[in-house]
């Protein structure tokens, strides 16, 4: 019981954020904030709305100077799934790679970040620098070596290869951000929980993890999105677009003589929606859950 109390006070202390709530803020100011936020939101969504509209645009209207097409060709959205298209397979591979890489990153990064945040051990700094350095490489420069490794392991066209490489590439960010969050959480909170009888792991799980949630979620989303959209490694490690994730398969619509913008953008829109939904789910749960009532 005491543990719970401690952790909940601890949570409030650290997470409650922002200036204190002004009682009955000015409606004019609120409207201005709303207006500005909506405008920015609109700007950020515009290219994707245009993508959606272009996906509906018939080929014949391809160069018409109109923002809204005269006719809507919904078939681009349905035919992406039909006939000879490998969209289903591509989507499955993308999902497997993104979830797999995210899981692997958390599995590997959580202990590493926690340990480096809590302990000063020999080689700690070297480790952190090593991690930072890995983020500095351009994947395009490394595909030759990666291809060789995966070929030797027989992992060409395997999602495992993509999971491992994507996890490796994004591990650095996860370790860094998690380590920063863990370091910001006072060790006393855990110690208090442990005095109250919690195990170290229990303290970690019930005290540290919830407090570091914004960091965990950021790391999680960062990895997930990077893996979801990764192109160059997936292109190298798959032998054909129908065995590749969406990012590579979609590229196939850019042909030698024409670009099939309808299908290119339709499949991109479809491929982006799951990420936004996932983000929406997590964002609401975490941000709102942790900051309820504390933000002006």
């Amino acid at each position: 019981m005491t543990t719970l109390t401690t952790s909940s006070t601890g949570r409030r202390r650290v997470v409650d954020a922002g200036p204190p709530k002004p009682r009955g803020g000015l409606p004019g100011k609120k409207i201005a904030i709303m207006g500005a936020a909506y405008l920015i939101a609109l700007i950020f969504i515009t290219p994707y709305l245009e993508m959606f509209l272009t996906a509906l645009r018939p080929v014949k209207e391809g160069t018409d100077p109109t923002i809204i097409p005269k006719h809507f060709e919904w078939s681009n959205f349905t035919s992406v799934f039909s006939g000879t298209s490998s969209f289903g397979t591509n989507m499955r591979i993308t999902l497997e790679v993104a979830f797999g890489a995210t899981f692997l990153v958390l599995l590997v990064a959580l202990p590493a970040a926690y340990y480096t945040a809590r302990k000063k051990f020999r080689g700690r700094k070297a480790f952190l620098i090593l991690v930072l350095v890995t983020q500095m490489f351009q994947p395009t420069a490394m595909v030759i070596g990666i291809y060789g490794e995966m070929r030797d392991l027989g992992l060409i066209n395997s999602v495992w290869a993509l999971i491992m490489v994507d996890a490796g590439f994004n591990l650095a960010f996860a370790v860094w951000i998690l380590s920063a969050y863990f370091a910001a959480i006072p060790a006393e909170l855990e110690q208090a929980a442990m005095i109250d009888g919690a195990t170290r792991f229990g303290a970690f799980r019930r005290v540290t993890i919830p407090l570091a949630m914004p960091g965990i979620v950021t790391a999680l989303i960062f990895t997930f999105i990077a893996a979801w959209n990764e192109f160059i490694v997936a292109l190298t490690l798959t032998t054909s677009p129908d065995k590749a994730p969406l990012s590579v398969a979609v590229d196939n619509y850019i042909g030698q003589y024409t670009v099939d913008y309808g299908h290119l953008f339709a499949s991109t829109v479809i491929a982006t929606i799951p990420v936004i939904i996932l983000f929406g789910l997590i964002e609401r749960k975490v941000v709102d859950g942790l900051t309820a009532g504390s933000i002006k």
């Binding site: 992406v80 000879t84 129908d242 196939n252 619509y253 042909g255 030698q256 099939d260």
Partner: peptide
């Protein structure tokens, strides 16, 4: 290489 640009004219087929 693929000479086409859509699912229907994919050289894969």
């Amino acid at each position: 290489p693929s000479y086409g640009s859509s699912d229907k004219d994919d050289t894969k087929l």
